[in-house]
Design a protein around this nucleic acid. Sequence first.
DNA 1: CGGATAGTTCGATCGTTGTCGAACCTTCCA
DNA 2: TGGAAGGTTCGACAACGATCGAACTATCCG
Lengths: 111, 111
Amino acid sequence: MRAMPMPDVSEIDLAGVMHAFADPSRLAIVAALAHMPEQSCDDLGSLAGLMSMAKSTRSHHMRVLREAGVTAARYEGTRKIIWLRREDLDSRFPGLLDAVLAGVDAEAELV
Amino acid sequence: MRAMPMPDVSEIDLAGVMHAFADPSRLAIVAALAHMPEQSCDDLGSLAGLMSMAKSTRSHHMRVLREAGVTAARYEGTRKIIWLRREDLDSRFPGLLDAVLAGVDAEAELV
DNA sequence: CGGATAGTTCGATCGTTGTCGAACCTTCCA
DNA sequence: TGGAAGGTTCGACAACGATCGAACTATCCG
């Protein structure tokens, strides 16, 4: 099985999480996971803004999110199932994830 | 007078703000501004973690924060006074700034 | 077995960013 | 008038990051 390093809750650092959120593609992934948890990487690829992205690039973004402590994953057959580490993020940085998700929605509504 | 471009509230974008927060030095500046508003750039330079920074580098960080819409500034004599755009950020991304500031405190307390 | 599906890894490219020192610009004050 | 103080701008440099295609791995299914 491939390695999937993921920081412990206590190791999640703010600047790292901010960096993970500092990219439109990753924000879109996070927002999608908020509305439909437990997605496969492949399903996430058919999002607006990510359709034209190479799968190696998508894989890169998934790694950034996971290493920052934003997401977790498990393998199911050939698929990799991704979800948000909601409780971990909420316990470490209360309100942060909700505020970011609300921010994504707020921006989407302006279009 | 030197130019100080600053985005309108409606132009503040989430990824940009996240990027502005994605640096320990800038997070330290933001946290300092939260506790002691209306600082001069020079005063902010005597923060832990910023003491050894060249003033050109500090100036760079100030610009990133301002262009992201996080801070505003005015000149007072030879000094430049900086403050957080609290209301603007709160109206555009409710709860975000507070969550980030709480996060900085939470990390500081772990030391 | 062999092909299809789902992801990862690698190397390359190219733009961005953090950092510095030096030079410069503004404003104040002696 | 001439420093001094506070910031900005510039050029350089190294590190990082987003992106791609190609090659690779792992799993399932016919």
